[in-house]
Design a binder for these strands. Sequence first.
RNA 1: GUGGCUAUAGCUCAGUUGGUUAGAGCACCGGAUUGUGGUUCCGGGGGUCGGGGGUUCGAGUCCCCUUAGCCACCCCA
Length: 443
Amino acid sequence: MNSPLISPRVLKGFRDTLPNMMLAREAILETARRVYRTYGYTPIDTPALEYSEILLGKGGEETDKQMFRFADQGERDVAMRFDLTIPFARFAAQHLQEIGSPFRRYHMATVWRAEKPQKGRFREFMQCDFDTIGTDSNAADIETLLVINDLLEAIGFERFTIRINNRLLLSGLLDQFGLEDQATGLLRALDKLAKIGPEKVLAEMTERTTARPEQAERILALCRAQGTPEELLAEVEPQLTGSPRGEEGLARVRELFAVVQSAGLPAGRVTLDLSIARGLDYYTGTIYETFLDDLPGIGSVCSGGRYDDLAGLFTKQRLPGVGASLGLDRLLAAMEELGQIESASTPAPVLMTVFDASRINDYLLTARRLRNAGLCVELFADEKAIGKQFKYADRRGFQLVVIAGPDEFAAGSWQVKDLVTGDQSTVADADLVTFVQQAIRPS
RNA sequence: GUGGCUAUAGCUCAGUUGGUUAGAGCACCGGAUUGUGGUUCCGGGGGUCGGGGGUUCGAGUCCCCUUAGCCACCCCA
């Protein structure tokens, strides 16, 4: 009579999330929401599924986008969103009248990419985007940097580096060489510097673009230069005089670092790295990449940049903007590898034990009293020996256990034990709420 | 999508040139400890060796396919 069992499994690149990881994820989402709001970013949402033509854009380079794409039941050509930027472009074009300009939004949602999975790279993952559109102001670029910094700090990181570059510097340089039209290929090669080394970058530059070897060497030499932002800028400056784009880039980067300095960010937190370029074509100005100092190999956990025109595919209205995206799942993978994910699997710090099942009313009502005071309390739901209940509390990561047996009921009191310190106190029923509130460690 | 490495208990891994009933640590459950976890001691459950096919007297071990993970390319959070 037994039907064959279906083997429980999930698709390649897709994963279940267990309680301890989910608690960590929710904590980060809450933090991101808080930080974004302090800068005035407002929340929006868009559909997970869109017409393929929207997501593909004009180029229709599906192979590059790696989208999950299929025909729906009405034979519409549809696809799962692979980032939050394209949907935002469509959204902005469609709702410009309602949202006005400039406009700041954050959007924290799941995206899907049919790529081959690797560590920190999944087919379903969550991004936490924030963008400011409708302004060319450098102030927006600088605030974007500050958001990234505040966000990582608020999540609890101290050792991370935000690498900054500005496409205008490179564009200015290329203007001088007459290589403007080779920008994409050159930048893509340059972006790999840290990974494949200067020789291979040079080779790729000369093989895949029309740049002559000596030009490629000049570009590479400038971008590889080491030093403080001021030193680097001083070094590039002579190469850019006369190029409007280059000079604007210089001014914007200088202004940004001036703020970084006066804002008192830790030394080395923000660096100028002329070699980072981002493979994406659409960045035109400031570029951001964020690396964890303790785990740089996992890649950038928060990246973004300035673009000239977000919604050019969908409207004639020009919408310049700047923004970045926190890669939540990549960050969580990094935190897990760094041992920063707590093992606790309960959101409640307090376990109400049931010592005497005949007094269940007292336990239920007292737990409720604690909850009404804003505390998170789980009632142990099985009739098991008190030792088992303690063990359960310990395994799940509860901080406090509340106990009452015949002696306590006779005396009108409770026992409250802190599992972390081992301290146990007798507390009068009337004082229980206050006592528990004070015993909870802020976390 | 292309190429490479890997898959043994919930987790991390042993398992000799193919040869009896596949092991350990941690985790889990029970007991020592019928009002107290985390330490200690004792005991227990749990594996068709990822799945399918083949070679062989005999396959965890060799071959093919498949699924998944990891790495490189590509791209990117």
